[in-house]
Design a protein around this nucleic acid. Structure first.
Length: 423
RNA sequence: GGUGGAGUGGGUGAGUGGCUGAAACCACCGGUUUGCUAAAUCGACGUACGGUAACCUCCGUACCGCGGGUUCGAAUCCCGCCUCCACCGCCA
């Protein structure tokens, strides 16, 4: 959520952003600013009314002490009318303020100047192409879901029996590969200075609002109505919320955190060949990196995060490319996002395995995550996060790209984690 | 899940209807003193929003776990909720 002041002070950028995002309601910024003015003037009237009441109340107290009952009674009658007027003001204040919040919830983050124009994922800019060799596979190459069956690594039907579609069961070397990747990713994050957390896998409503899953993406999360808790769609939610309602000092930056969690997504409305196998799941594993940064340093931090993910993919020896998301594909809360895609050689498709974003103050405004500068003035911090990495599509690419006639080769970097070099 | 107790500023903690945005102490910050460190001493010391476009100042409003209520007036009384502690129940 953007602050009204931010919108006022960066009107051109926010307007340009709405255009890039193909946002239809072009009057929304003007409406927002008008409503904000109305809200403030109403608040001023309320304050004045309350002031009059407070003064009268003090007088009444004094009069009672002096035994001047009649005068006191007179004032009491006055207060009664003042209170009625105040209550009317309160009602309109609540109404205006509710409308304003509603509008602010609808306004997506201001896109970074470098975000390209475009409406769909086809308009994303290839920020870093893959110019080395692609895996050279025999014509008998198999997609990962067939490899998973052939080598008894992942059982989709069994998961469907136990839970439902999109909840695979990993078995034997398939399960060990999961565990190996999680440990590899966590160790690499640790080496890059990210402090490890193992957060709760369910969050309350305040946390889901804090990182922007609510109210915008209600229906994408699994919700336990009995206790009003949400299964996390990503570790970003619990980990970023560690810093909800926190005021930092400038020397606290940079804050670098990471964590492994399973992620739960309802993915309502996704069907078809493109979601086969591991391509899209309701539950999957992911290691996430999260950063909280000084606004002046957040884009440098974003670069560092890109480097970290590049390193992971290089070590896994997977062909990858980096996309800069266009306005139409950019998520609601993000100012700038880079997607990493690996090439899955049997499907002959690029698969998204990481999304690295700078949210600037969009999340911190909701989180009330601020820092004190040298003059003890408070500013919103910047938040960033990225997958490092999401497992299923990495597994898909590893299986497909490394298949040979008599097995699947495990990249060298994982050997000490898997305990085997080949499946 | 049941019963009992508790939640006040950065911390400890006083405060049972008006003189309390809140005593006192500690911490932090600034000054004085002192060979340095330490001690002593004086002072300042919450947050948010609005008036207000910017820093300060000033004025106002709100805030004593959260949300309602009673009252001219609530940290204080009433109701609901949350969290923590203790005991009981259940349990990996």
């Amino acid at each position: 959520m953007l602050q009204v002041n931010f919108i006022k002070n960066n009107l051109e950028r926010v307007q340009a952003s709405l255009q890039k995002r193909n946002f239809k309601n072009t009057d929304i910024l003007e409406e927002t600013i008008k409503l904000d003015e109305l809200k403030r003037s109403t608040q001023t009237s309320m304050n004045e009314k309350q002031e009059a009441i407070n003064k009268a109340s003090k007088e009444i107290g004094g009069l009672f002490k002096q035994g001047k009952k009649e005068e006191a009674e007179g004032l009491r009658a006055n207060v009664a009318t003042l209170k009625e007027e105040l209550n009317n003001l309160k009602v309109s204040f609540e109404e205006v303020s509710g409308k304003l919040t509603g509008l602010l919830y609808e306004i997506p983050n201001a896109a970074h100047a470098s975000v390209p124009e475009g409406s769909t994922d086809e308009d994303n800019e290839v920020f870093q192409a893959w110019d080395a060799n692609m895996p050279d596979l025999a014509t008998s190459k198999l997609p990962h879901w067939e490899l998973a069956k052939k080598y008894d690594l992942i059982d989709f039907e069994l998961g469907a029996k136990i839970t439902g579609a999109g909840f695979p069961v990993y078995k034997g070397k398939g399960a060990k590969l999961q565990r190996a990747l999680i440990n590899f990713f966590l160790d690499e994050a640790d080496k890059s200075g990210y402090a490890e957390f193992l957060p709760p896998h369910m969050v309350n409503e305040a946390s889901a609002i804090g990182t922007g899953q609510l109210p915008d993406k209600d229906g994408q999360m699994y919700h336990d109505a009995q206790d009003d808790l949400y299964l996390i769609p990503t570790a970003e939610v619990p980990i970023t919320n560690i810093y909800r309602d926190v005021i930092l000092k400038e020397e606290d930056f940079s804050i670098k955190m990471c964590g492994y969690t399973p992620c739960f997504r309802r993915e309502a409305g996704s069907y078809g060949a493109h979601v086969r196998g591991l391509n899209r799941l309701h539950q999957f594993d992911k290691v996430e990196i999260v950063r909280i940064e000084h606004p002046e340093r957040s884009y440098a931090a974003l670069d560092e995060m890109l480097d970290h993910v590049r390193g992971l993919l290089a070590k896994l020896e997977l062909p990858y490319r980096i996309l800069r998301l266009c306005g139409g594909d950019l998520s609601f809360a993000s100012a700038l996002t880079f997607d990493f895609e690996v090439f899955s050689a049997a499907q002959e498709r690029w698969l998204e395995v990481s999304s690295v974003s700078n949210f600037e103050t969009f999340q911190s405004n909701r989180l009330k995550l601020r820092y004190n500068d040298a003059n003890k003035k408070k500013h919103l911090a910047h938040t960033l996060n990225g997958s490092a990495l999401a497992l299923p599509r990495i597994v898909a690419a590893l299986l497909e790209n490394n298949q040979t006639g008599d097995g699947i080769n495990i990249p060298k970097v994982l050997w000490k984690y898997t305990g085997f070099e080949k499946i």
